[in-house]
Design a protein around this nucleic acid. Structure first.
Lengths: 243, 243
DNA sequence: CGACCTCTTGAGACAGGTCAATGTTTGTGG
DNA sequence: CCACAAACATTGACCTGTCTCAAGAGGTCG
């Protein structure tokens, strides 16, 4: 459970990162990307189950996911962990800690994962001189808020089937943007984690998946997902829900 | 349904606004507040049911609520409106539109309401020169994200009773911060709107309220809420929920 | 190869949704 | 300022989607 440092070799720099066009420095000129690269403190490698940071620890940095995936969890009261987010490559982790001295939730790797640590004070400082970067930061946060609102609408108004459909479509879309197949992918999370995230019991997740298979919407083998009928799935997920 | 302009008299300026200490210019020096005041395009007065802006219209400004209250709704598919947010005085509306050219949802006044329109390009420009303002903008967005996550956890894991308790506590807390009584307040929204927001049927809202009254947690007269037992209510809202 | 997660499947219970009927506010125009 | 319509709120009876509990089948990793 210890972070391991990596030297910042050539191959690790933003300039040659495969996700550069989706990540923070997306809109920067080459020279600016180099500036941006210098403010990155280090690349971290996490193994499955390792913490990126813990709820309550001091906020210092945001993190860009380079490979792998993570989950964000909060422990409210004495209860079990409540799962609020999954992070995939190119996504920015930790933005919700800015306005307090601490991270409001924990982030844990779901598999072997690498992230780039970006100290927020340096990012802030650089953003003063690079309007494009600043604008992009605003945009990222704004987009994050919109995504949250979609989740809120989903949880407040959709049935179990619609939730799972929405979940698959969301993942599919993110994989597509990353340049992976939107039709075949591997879940890095357990059924229980999916259920936690979607507000349903593990058993329900399992049953709905079964139903989807019977209807030939998807083929599921363990954690391998193969989307067979994207159209119907999208329709299902977009339906107006209860009432 | 038409916006009405108001001249910017002395009494309308940020310097003398009662919510200044909670609003955007909170951390600014007096001189800076004056600068901030000049970028505000106008104060708008809305009547109950009037739109501040509509889903899909071009994003130009964010708005600070001065008095009254608003709801944020989205129309997904052919369905009814889905309610994702309530806004009270000093809160900032429209931040989720930054990264697209359009507002992703509509905002409608729940009662007579006044707001300050702040063109985002000017805000951005000013934030370049006032680091304190910039930092505060980041903080506001970060806080917004955290609030959304709390709502997500609530919807995914809490029972109807816990949701309503959480809702009351949230409102109460916001009124307290505004300097109003946290124990007595008036709901500007209908039961149906509450239900829409909390993901439950109107009838359930009504029944749970009835239950709360029987347990002497609150006294309800129409839209007047009187919180009698804050402690138990907080306990209820914080409980770990289902499973 | 065995212990421990993880996933699936079944049966029964229950929270909350739906439908329906009635009472209560609110707002508007005479 | 009152009267009346329309919107809003409550209450009851019933129904259904999802949770719970339980048992067993795969997987996976030391």
């Amino acid at each position: 459970m210890v972070h391991r440092r990596r030297s910042l070799g050539q191959e690790n720099r933003c300039q040659s990162c495969r996700h550069r066009s989706l990540c923070l420095p997306l809109a920067l000129e080459l020279e600016e990307v180099e500036q941006f690269d210098t403010i990155i403190r280090r690349r971290l490698t996490l193994r499955r189950g390792e913490w990126l940071y813990r709820q309550g620890s001091p906020f210092t940095s945001v993190y860009a996911v380079r490979s792998g995936s993570l989950k964000q969890v909060a422990n409210e009261g004495g209860s079990d962990e409540l799962l609020t987010h999954y992070y995939l490559p190119s996504e920015l982790v930790g933005l919700d800690g800015i306005d307090e001295v601490i991270y409001p939730s924990s982030v844990i790797a779901l598999e072997a994962t690498t992230v780039c640590e970006i100290p927020f004070d340096r990012l802030e400082f650089l953003s003063e001189r690079l309007p494009v970067l600043r604008a992009h930061l605003y945009r990222i946060m704004s987009k994050e808020m919109r995504k949250d609102l979609r989740v809120i609408r989903m949880l407040a108004h959709k049935t179990a089937d619609q939730r799972l459909a929405t979940f698959f479509i969301g993942l599919s879309e993110r994989f597509r943007q990353l340049g992976y197949s939107p039709y075949r992918f591997r879940l890095s999370m357990t059924r229980a984690e999916i259920g936690n995230y979607l507000g349903m019991a593990v058993e329900t997740v399992s049953r709905v998946m079964g139903r989807f298979q019977q209807q030939d919407l998807v083929a599921v083998h363990g954690r391998e997902i193969h989307i067979l009928d994207m159209h119907t799935l999208v329709e299902l997920g977009g339906e107006s829900g209860r009432r």
